[in-house]
Design a binder for these strands. Structure first.
Lengths: 196, 196, 196, 196
DNA sequence: TTATAAGCGAGACGGTACGTCAGGTCTTCCG
DNA sequence: CGGAAGACCTGACGTACCGTCTCGCTTATAA
């Protein structure tokens, strides 16, 4: 069956539409037209634009192996800074960012989508961060992961202030302080990974 | 433009519709019908459902004096806990919560709405929190305010986990630790207020 | 585009609405509702109520073969009288009359509709009358056809006076006189027909 | 009070709007705006756009004395030709023509307007023509007047063919023939007039 | 001269219809 | 026989006018 072929065309169409701005204006009809696919075909596999956007996002962000990678150099502060910088880059990406915004918006009124989002994207990422923190000897790694990620989300979703490198460093410092200091291993081990 | 009588009818309609769940399904036509008002009248004063929802929210949350009040007992940890508990209560309120969700969602694709939100709601609130932190001797009060509020937003918007009292306490403790400890005044002063 | 089934429903709806008087109050929404059809479906095939009314009129008046028939008994005066009587009957018909009134009214401000009207309804009819006059040996048949039809239109559109049988006879006599008398064939031939 | 002043402003506005084409698109709001008058003032004196258009038309066509003038040189054919030429000129006038079209259209679904039209415009004009024909010894002057005017209306309203001088002459000849020939006075008398 | 009421502009208001867009479903027909 | 094409019903969009209804602001007489 031409399923994968169709998925690719649809993802391609979504990314190209998203790249043109106006992510909020993406419609089933628009995607169908751009992908050269019938509306019926879309509805057969996805129930709403939100789901399609999320699917496209996922296909791109877990590129091949379905693994979330978190840096693990042995220096927690350095790793957190790298992590935060990566997040900021993704959120600022002209394609990824708007897609994530749209999905986050739709989640607010679509429970099923929210569930998928948590299960396939948010959960693994939070787990990976938490795991890295536990490696570093942090006591309540889940909560500290939240403390680390929450302010980034706040700035981004509420658009309060732009990101800059100084803020990222200071934020890492605060997070580490909140965690009760670092007791990281002195020697490096392989990076932490979580399979989706 | 719109007479106060009309505004009241519209806000009333929005709240009643929001109370019935399905906030995502609120439409201009639905509001007009419920309020007993014509569509033209809505469009004359508000440009989208998002703007109306926000207006209704604002009218309700700054009831009379347009002032954001933050507790100030002299004990920063206690005040933050009270503050967080209040936020959680609002976010969990069956009317406020869904309205805020809807507005936050629409902000993602409506820059003007986002601007208003920041100017009239988010800004004053963040400023008030920040001000209380400064009173408590916190060094970078704006950033710490963000650190305090961000994780709440994260849990709520991404619906990762429900709120509970223990988490609130622990979160306050982490925030205080991240702020570098408290050097609060020993005696109470009047609560901090910020006029919208 | 539109399926025959849809066209039939629409024509049916128009005729039923027209039969209820108030032809001037016929609207796209009204037709859609009565026909059990969506507005989109109407707009897909017809650009205005005028066009729909005209289409319904046409569908009814050229029932099957798309031919305009003019009597041809060999006696021009008798044929013209029959023709005029038929016209008067149509204009007085409780469904046809109001429809024609409405279409004529809309033609005054819709050039495209006027063009269609001329091409598909007025033209063939005038040609058929003219042809019959030519058969009767009338010198300038087009102009005399106009002389014959014009006063009927005048009475009807300007609502100056009602039609009666005596007037019809006298009008035919005047027309024949204006044509310079009759030199009709003594023997009957098949009636004149013009294909639309 | 300042009634006449208002009427003038309104008539002025109507004529200027009519001169811009799109007579069918003339609205109460448009007239009010152009005339610098409130809608209430319009509704106080006129019940619909059709009535206003007709009023403006009337104010212009019976300029001062409210009299319809028909030429009366003693030569009926010549007078009819002059008359027809005048009618054609009016119907072709870039302001009068469209106004008349619009009024004629609205008459089709507004009985009260139709009645006024007949009483104040059509009636006097037909009577004047008929009177001139009677002067010329025509037997059934009312019907012949109709025979004379009808075809002009036919060409104009149904937009079948443009007017030209040759057609006018031929039409007058046909009319005279239909009337049974002319038995006009050899000497001229004052022109026939009918007071509105 | 000052109230004082009538005439008027401005325009908010509840409506109806407009013409368009997209959401989902169902049918047709081609490869 | 699966999928592209697209007709179809539905419901909401945002706009234009409708006809009614206050509002204040002239302005021109009556107190």
């Amino acid at each position: 069956m031409a399923r994968q072929r169709t998925r690719d065309k649809v993802h391609q169409a979504v990314l190209s539409l998203a790249g043109e701005g106006r992510v909020g204006a993406i419609t089933m009809e628009g995607i169908a037209a751009r992908a050269g696919v019938s509306k019926q075909t879309l509805y057969r596999s996805w129930s709403s634009t939100g789901v399609i956007l999320f699917d496209a996002l996922l296909a791109r962000s877990v590129d091949e192996d379905g693994v979330v990678v978190v840096p693990d150099s042995g220096d927690l502060a350095r790793d957190l800074e790298e992590l935060a910088t990566g997040m900021v880059a993704e959120l600022s990406d002209p394609t990824q960012g708007p897609l994530l915004r749209a999905v986050t918006a739709e989640m607010q009124s679509d429970d099923a989508l929210a569930e998928e989002f948590r299960r396939l994207l948010l959960g693994p990422q939070m787990t990976a961060v938490s795991e890295r923190l536990r490696q570093g000897g942090v006591a309540e790694p889940d909560d500290v992961a939240e403390l680390f990620v929450g302010p980034v989300l706040h700035r981004w979703l509420l658009r309060s202030r732009p990101f800059d490198a100084d803020w990222v460093s200071a934020h890492v410092a605060r997070t580490v302080r909140a965690a009760g200091g670092v007791r990281d291993r002195p020697t490096a081990t392989p990076p932490v990974g979580v399979t989706l």
